[in-house]
Design a protein around this nucleic acid. Structure first.
Lengths: 186, 186
DNA sequence: GTCTATAGACGGATAGAC
DNA sequence: GTCTATCCGTCTATAGAC
């Protein structure tokens, strides 16, 4: 697997640029310049710019779930685990300078013009919802809580907080929804 | 004011294309072709593509507030007025084919690269928050409700529902947050 | 003020040497 | 499999005729 060195460098450079500048504002020439690679090599590893975009999304999704596992490692209390998802998203926003969610950003930019992308984002958000639903079910054992309703409520609050904090460049929406969520946990 | 005919046509064409395809994916050439106008005329009315973008945002903001006034006209009950904001955003999403919020979209695409744009979007979302806060204050007279907390809660739920429905292409998040909000209104 | 023509830079992608 | 050179299209914006 040593042969993936060049590919990795291209991918990480492209990921950073796509996230910071946007997909359409990032040119192939800039990617190869910053990755210090020749254009022929890029097209040897990726068949097109769209192909590179999809590889970027897959990488970010893996990183997202890996990061959450790391962030919530050792937390066994179900209520605290739910809260840790909020603090995870807050941490992601803070460390990125409130640059936003990779998936919401790319979906906003490309709309429905690249079906593989809109499908991927849709599926990714469903995975996030499923994660929340499982945590809520874990929490709500033997209670009368409507888990579907509650899961959706938390999911939408988090999505709202991410978008709002990206625009305002402040972490306060996360503090807010943490308070709200803690108050809702019976 | 008759002289604004060409300008209006350019602006409306650009608005539609910016919204559907994204700002960076829309070229000047496409705008002038669809507006059936010469490129020299476009630059006579707008000094640059960025200038056209700002005019688009101002137009959409005016349209947004005008549309809500129209949608909520005749509703005097404060609780119902809050709910009508949810149904308004739901209507906007449905009629646009779940194309999303103009302002979130443009902020996601351009990030911080055009300060005039990110500042505008930030200010616009603050206006939406202020509108909600005023409705909540109207509603909460003589009650013990924490209006700031409650306003932020509603705002974030709506933003989350807009983003989520844009990705899933479904209206269900709005039905969800309407139920949640109605349950919270004491 | 609206038009055509075009500048000048950059977009994604390919060919072929090594 | 990495390199350089280059194709052709499109980009935003300007110049100058009418």
């Amino acid at each position: 697997m040593k042969k993936e060195k060049a590919r990795e460098r291209i991918l990480k450079t492209a990921a950073e640029l796509f996230y910071r500048q946007g997909f359409n504002s990032t040119g192939i020439n800039q990617i190869i310049a910053e990755a210090d690679i020749a254009i022929g090599s890029l097209y040897n590893h990726f068949s097109s710019k769209n192909d590179l975009l999809q590889a970027y999304l897959i990488m970010e999704e893996n990183e997202w779930f890996r990061g959450f596992e790391e962030h919530s490692a050792g937390i066994s209390d179900p209520g605290k685990k739910i809260i840790s998802l909020i603090t995870y998203r807050k941490k992601l926003q803070k460390t990125s300078g409130f640059a936003g969610c990779h998936f919401i950003k790319i979906a906003s930019e490309t709309g429905e013009s690249i079906p593989a992308v809109s499908d991927f984002v849709k599926s990714h958000k469903e995975k996030q919802k499923k994660l929340i639903r499982e945590m809520v079910q874990q929490y709500a054992q033997n209670t009368a809580l409507d888990t579907d309703q509650f899961s959706e409520h938390i999911f939408l609050l988090i999505e709202g907080a991410v978008v709002s904090s990206t625009i305002s460049k402040k972490a306060s929406p996360f503090d807010h929804i943490q308070k709200i969520t803690e108050a809702m946990l019976p």
